[in-house]
């Protein structure tokens, strides 16, 4: 196997291997790897007790709970509505469908700060939407969930859509001709096919939500222990020139995010393998 790979590389007539690999590695190192490694070098130079005290400070722990909790709920909301939207866009025809399809990308294209101030104004107690509710939405965890739902929606829709598109009509016909009703066909034939994509979409939206700052910071209200997200803790420490503290919290966030990226990659590897075997 190893030998075969090496042989193929040598036999190819395509030029530019060393040039493009070298350029890719150098550029990657300067822009991404060297800067990111600073987090780990600076963390190593801290004493363990100092590090431990910073990352387990009650205010930091409260922020992890807020960040992970709201990201998770927003991810779930997006799984439900994102899958429904993907289904509607692939399976049904209705007026204005193309515009709706294009609009799904809005959170990718709209700057997060713009989304943040717009959502805050809408959901604040006297805003267009907020005025209809007896309880506060903006400046509570609910507001954070709304901002993170906005940010994460395209991830689920755009991961599920192509998979749904590729499910052949034959499997559904087979299922129906064997006597299954529509719900059974969906649950037993279609759902298992799109499930890996739903998980991938959820993980992407969740990973993005964990680090999100721009849209959340306006709507959250940023009350310590209640609506303070972890990126904001880093920001606050930076403004106080507490670089060691900011780095320690950043390490916790990075390790958490990398674990999720790892899970996403495992899922993609698994699904790719499955499809390549067919």
């Amino acid at each position: 196997m190893q030998l075969a790979l090496k042989k193929r590389k040598k036999n190819t007539i395509i030029p530019g291997f060393s040039l493009t690999l070298g350029y890719t590695m150098i550029y990657l190192s300067i822009i991404v790897l060297l800067p990111l490694s600073m987090i780990f070098f600076n963390t190593i130079s801290m004493s363990w007790s100092e590090f431990y005290e910073t990352v387990t400070h009650p205010r930091a722990v409260a922020s992890y709970k807020v960040t992970i909790g709201t990201s998770f709920v927003a991810g779930l909301i997006n799984v439900v509505f994102g899958t429904i939207i993907a289904w509607v866009l692939i399976r049904y025809e209705f007026p204005g469908k193309r515009i709706v399809d294009g609009l799904v990308d809005l959170p990718f294209a709209l700057p997060t700060a713009v989304a943040g101030i717009a959502l805050t104004t809408l959901y604040s107690p006297n805003g267009w939407i907020g005025q209809f509710f007896d309880f506060k939405i903006a400046f509570t965890p609910l507001g954070i969930i709304i901002a993170l739902t906005f940010i994460g929606l395209p991830f689920v829709v755009r991961t599920v859509q192509p998979v749904l598109q590729n499910i052949g009509g034959e499997v559904e016909e087979a299922s129906a001709s064997l006597g299954a009703n529509r719900l059974q066909t969906f649950l037993k034939v279609i759902f298992p096919e799109i499930f890996p994509a739903i998980i991938t979409g959820f993980s992407l939206a969740f990973a993005r939500a964990l680090g999100e700052y721009g849209s959340v910071v306006f709507i959250a209200g940023n009350m310590p222990m209640k609506t303070e997200i972890t990126p904001l803790i880093i920001m606050t420490k930076l403004e106080q020139y507490d670089y060691a503290g900011a780095t320690a919290i950043a390490t916790v966030m990075l390790v958490t995010s990398f674990l999720f990226i790892f899970v996403i990659n495992m899922i993609q590897w698994y699904t790719n393998r499955k499809f390549n075997h067919i």
Binding site: A207, G211, P231, L238, L254, S257, I261
Partner: peptide
């Protein structure tokens, strides 16, 4: 990798450098 890094951390690393 940069997709997995919070924008705030992306700023922080360049402050550290």
């Amino acid at each position: 990798l940069p997709f997995a890094v919070s924008p705030v951390i992306a700023g922080l690393i360049f402050i550290l450098l």
